[in-house]
Write a protein that binds this DNA or RNA. Structure first.
Lengths: 127, 127
DNA sequence: CTAACTGTTATACTATAAATATAACAGTTA
DNA sequence: TAACTGTTATATTTATAGTATAACAGTTAG
């Protein structure tokens, strides 16, 4: 599991970390029950502060992606990630709306948009 | 053209403003050549500072959505919004990727995702 | 038992971005 | 002339991101 961070990006490091781990799970690079590095070792590997990693872990825990046992350390949720509910679908729509609005303005037709989404979906299926 | 802002949101006001105007253009609620309120009057109407509106206008101008003439004021680009290029498609993919990754984790199948996108697309077509 | 690890919490500091508050300048228009 | 336009400059407040230490409590290997 390699983490790819852009320190020049305006996107917060802890946010990039969250996305990288979620993508790892989606790509089945990280399997249910699999262990993750400790906050200290991961922070040390990446070259960032312990608290930045902890912030990402806490949010991932809160959203059900990982479990944190005092003894076993950090683990990808063995029961799998909680399935999408109405709340998630609502917030997903809220995030998609501005992307589609700008695409409509820039004359990206629906087929091209769908093709792009399909390609991304495929990248998480076939590996 | 009514502006809908959430002052409790963690999303910056100027960003929400940008999205609202882009959605207005996508919905054809704002037509090419149509005038927009001055920075001062819009700021006054919404109850925010002049500079917050100006920041949104400057970014919209930079991305080709609007033109700002010293004399005519602020106007929706009469030639239409610049069509999507490779740069735009690349950044669009970058924004879609984490949304789809999390959806895959939460077992939102591709059809449901596409249906959601299709519904949003339709909301900009039929009005 | 000790030493080294684990997550967790607390505190303090720096840096940056968002938003506001005034003020002024230059050009346009009624 | 007066009232508007976008634009620029400066200063301030607030919130967040990230870092730097330090300590606590529990676990585990030597």
């Amino acid at each position: 599991m390699l983490i790819n961070l852009d320190f020049e990006s305006q996107e917060p490091i802890y946010q990039q970390l969250i996305e990288q781990i979620i993508e790892g799970i989606a790509r089945k690079d990280l399997l249910p029950g699999e262990g993750l590095p400790s906050v200290r070792s991961l922070a040390s590997d990446i070259g960032i502060n312990l608290h930045t990693v902890n912030k990402a872990y806490q949010q991932l825990k809160h959203e059900g992606f990982i479990l944190i046992h005092r003894q076993k350390g950090v683990v990808v949720n063995p029961d799998g990630v909680p399935k999408a509910d109405v709340t998630y679908m609502t917030q997903l729509e809220k995030k998609l709306k501005p992307l589609i609005a700008e695409s409509v303005c820039r004359e990206v037709d629906e087929e091209s948009f769908m093709k792009l989404c399909n390609d991304i979906y495929k990248s998480y299926r076939g590996g």
